[in-house]
Write a protein that binds this DNA or RNA. Structure first.
Lengths: 196, 196
DNA sequence: TTCTAACTTAGACACGTGTCCAACCAATTG
DNA sequence: CAATTGGTTGGACACGTGTCTAAGTTAGAA
């Protein structure tokens, strides 16, 4: 597990040929479709490779594991969907809620991917590790930005934990991804109460 | 996956012979040891069965999956470690913190089991499902009890999500299980601020 | 056009999960 | 003591993961 190049994701990368980029792109696209169509339970690396018209061996050249592929897919989707601008919100609370709402509907729009990544982030693969850190940092940064000068460590931490918890609970099926928005609105208000 | 008796865990159960109980107990004990000694990555159902002096086939008679075994193990450990009595705390905040501290050290005392269960709770096995609901309810009930009359839905929800998030983050390795106690103290205080 | 370095591939492998079933004990029960 | 019932077992099976290697391909350089 994990030793190939696989430093994708900061893709303009020395030593990666156009052909390789093409291959990786095809794999990612295939993974996304597969995830949507058959779900992460049924999807296999072999299926993805086939859909991308690539051999399984090649797929494993670029992705150290299924979890790595999931994480990469999620990371890309996440950066493709940046948070709404903080200035557009009437209050700090509303701004943070805009972030959680945005993330919630982001997840709700791709429940299979969300479920897949939640599990995969628990993997101890070094390739997953890197992405996990980036993803975590991205959440923190969105909350910090929305909080602006109010971005107290404790508050950011509380929000991050609550959001992680929401992700976990939805992954477990205790909440639907669609319910996350409303639920987090209340939680955000509760956490920020008397502060904004 | 999943169709056997396996309604363990409410064990005084009609139709389960003493011999079966003995078998299950041995499997659970073996699972606990195995988890502690080799970790959930390396542990296999076969190893557990061997350690319990039972055939793999028998192990699968009582546990529908590895995840089911993990969940059952965690559930039992959890109920064996009830929350500290609410009356022993000076304030509501302190009471809730006592609960999170207690849970944190509970997890820290068995990090491998904690990591294992976090992953396994994401499984869609019906056998896991039941345990997941029970475990979730147990957390909620501990927080509600500590909050007493202050047990507002939003607050309980915020606490539960934050705790789930802590579990997830520790499972990911973003936090150590040992850090959870301190981290949650701050988060609890933040959530309850101006309320207690 | 031919050489060469980079990329891809088939296919086999070791290993874990979870399923199945016929054979096989072991304790009752008659 | 002999049936019968209920629990256990070996062993094979289908399937997925991830690894490896020797043999293709493909482009671009000479």
């Amino acid at each position: 597990m994990s030793n190939q190049l696989s430093a994708l994701s900061q893709l303009p990368r020395r030593g990666v040929s156009a052909r390789q980029v093409e291959t990786v792109e095809r794999l990612l696209a295939a993974g996304e479709v597969e995830l949507r169509e058959v779900g992460h339970e049924a999807m296999t690396m072999r299926t993805v490779a086939k859909r991308a018209d690539v051999s399984p061996a090649t797929a494993y050249t670029y992705f150290a594991s299924k979890n790595h592929l999931f994480a990469e897919l999620f990371w890309r989707a996440l950066v493709d969907n940046p948070a709404p601008a903080a200035e557009d919100s009437a209050s700090v609370v509303a701004g943070v809620q805009a972030v959680t709402r945005h993330l919630s509907s982001f997840l709700a729009a791709r429940p299979e991917m969300a479920a897949a990544v939640t599990g995969s982030l628990l993997s101890h693969d070094p390739d997953v590790e890197r992405l996990r850190l980036r993803i975590g940092a991205e959440f923190v940064s969105r909350f910090s930005a929305a909080l602006g000068p109010l971005a107290d460590d404790a508050v950011v931490d509380a929000l991050t934990l609550a959001f992680s918890g929401a992700l976990l609970q939805a992954g477990m099926g205790l909440s639907t991804y669609d319910d996350l928005g409303d639920r987090l609105d209340v939680v955000v208000a509760t956490i920020l109460e008397g502060r904004a």
